[in-house]
Nucleic acid binder design. Structure first.
Length: 479
DNA sequence: GTAAAGTTGCA
DNA sequence: GCAACTTTA
């Protein structure tokens, strides 16, 4: 007989979920005795990984949204608190014992601590004579399978992208579609009085501000609506509108991709269905490939999960310690309107437009010369889409410590970037309302007089001087 | 409009 | 060798 325990983590969906699909197939087979699902609230570990209230709340709401969808499949969901990853093995084996499960099914995660936890869980199940079935769902091509001619991992994005697209063309022939799990015959009622994920996370996390909650409905249904709406109406003009933060030109799917309430395969599938050969789809698919690239890197270079830079020589860089400047950056009071607008959008909504993430990150690491660790941590704690691979990859790119780093001497000019991506100052006006009366010409760099009149602070650094300082700091560590 | 500058990965 | 690199001055 077979009775799978499906363990959910960052794959909080029923559609196109390989572990769930195969568990349900086994549970509904001739000797199958149904499926039981589990989710562990690892609040202490999440906090240690710098998850903030927005992320923890989004994940827990995603779990709450998953439960009725599983119930429709005849799969009961057991939710338990297991504060640290080291508690996972005993929590899961006790669930397996209580519900007579014959094995565990799950999709792999790729971060270092997650990988170690999964090895411990797999070992514990095998010791008990239970089966372990693991699958890939986080990326289209499993980490380690996209390699250069020298059989090495790519460390530059464009060659990776080309190889990834070739692999996709090769795979197109096998044409395995998006899977839907089969319902289970008998849903045995499972008594789970502990099972409110949001209540279980309250030991460590607080409710996030209401606007965050309201901006980000959690779960598979909102994710699918977002993707449908995006591919139907926004994808054709994505390449033209994606870099303009005042417009709603992006998919806003990042929290769902991080939680797994939608699969990257489904995103790609829908984008391709809308016609691969138009520039909007090609441009968005490139963004999906950036996500894949950073996940592949995390596996190929374990030091990225340990706070170390990809470019090891940048460990020697003389970063500045400046708590006052760091606090102003976090608060959106740097005196650079586009940076402040971005940081205030982050604080208010738990999300920041991708182009603004680069500008804000470049400002902290180059203009202020503050260690990228500080920015990485602040983003992790603030973002509803917090994700180690993407966040670390983006920060190291901006800091020029990463793979495919912008050369150190290429420092974004926040005022030029501002004019380019927010030409009329619409976005700045929305998030820095004290500048609302300034015209589109002045709003990017208000005069001292205008700053006084608007009660807006002077710039905390002179960009030209700060740029030279950053370039010199990098030159100093060249061999 | 064009020079600036370092490295990867493939021709 | 040479193009590419989410560019700036």
């Amino acid at each position: 007989m077979t009775r799978p325990l499906i363990w959910f983590r960052s794959d909080l969906r029923t559609h196109d979920n390989p572990a769930l699909f195969h568990a349900c197939r086994a549970g509904a087979a001739k000797d199958g005795k149904g499926v039981v699902a589990a989710f562990l609230v690892a609040d202490h570990q999440w906090a240690a990984h710098d998850w903030g209230d927005p992320k923890a709340d989004f994940i827990c709401r995603s779990v709450a949204a998953l439960a009725p969808r599983l119930a429709n499949l005849g799969v009961p969901l057991v939710v338990r608190r297991a504060p640290r990853f080291r508690d996972a093995a005993s929590a899961l084996t006790s669930i397996a014992q209580a519900h007579a499960c014959t094995g565990i099914w799950f999709n792999n995660e790729h971060e270092l601590n997650e990988t170690r936890r999964d090895e411990a869980v797999a070992a514990a199940f095998q010791r008990d004579g239970r089966s372990v079935s693991r699958y890939h769902d986080q990326v289209l091509f499993a980490p380690g399978t996209i390699l250069s001619a020298k059989h090495a991992p790519y460390t530059v994005f464009t060659p990776f992208k080309n190889a990834w697209l070739r692999a996709l063309a090769d795979r197109a022939s096998d044409n395995s579609g998006l899977t839907v799990p089969v319902p289970q015959r008998q849903a045995e009622p499972v008594c789970d009085s502990e099972g409110d994920p949001i209540a279980l996370s309250r030991t460590t996390f607080s409710p996030p501000p209401a606007p965050i909650f309201e901006s980000w409905p959690a779960g598979e249904a909102p994710a699918i609506r977002l993707l449908d709406d995006f591919t139907r109406t926004k994808l054709v003009s994505y390449h033209l509108r994606r870099d303009l933060p005042a417009l709603d030109g992006t998919s806003r799917l990042s929290p769902h991709l991080a939680a797994g309430s939608i699969s990257p395969r489904r995103c790609l599938h829908d984008a391709i269905s809308s016609g691969l050969h138009h520039p909007g789809a090609a441009s968005w698919i490139t963004e999906l490939i950036w996500r894949e690239f950073y996940r592949h890197l995390l596996v190929a270079f374990p030091r990225l999960s340990m706070g170390r830079p990809f470019a090891l020589e940048t460990t020697r860089l003389q970063w500045r310690t400046d708590p006052a400047a760091l606090a102003l950056w976090k608060a959106g009071r740097t005196g650079f309107p586009i940076v402040d607008a971005a940081m205030r959008q982050l604080a208010a909504t738990g999300w920041m437009h991708n182009r603004l993430r680069m500008i804000a990150a470049m400002f902290l690491t180059k203009d202020l010369l503050i260690h990228w660790h500080e920015g990485e941590r602040h983003f992790m704690r603030s973002l509803v889409d917090a994700d180690l691979a993407s966040n670390n990859g983006g920060w190291q790119w901006s800091a020029s410590t990463g793979t495919d780093a912008a050369p150190y001497f290429r420092v974004f000019n926040p005022v030029l970037q501002s004019r380019k991506i927010d030409p009329d100052g619409l976005f700045i006006r929305r998030w820095v309302p004290e500048l609302a009366t300034l015209d589109g010409r002045e709003i990017h760099e208000p005069s001292p007089l205008a700053r006084t009149a608007c009660d807006y602070p002077p710039p905390i650094v002179d960009h030209a001087a700060a740029r030279l300082r950053a370039v010199e700091a990098f030159k100093a560590i060249l061999h």
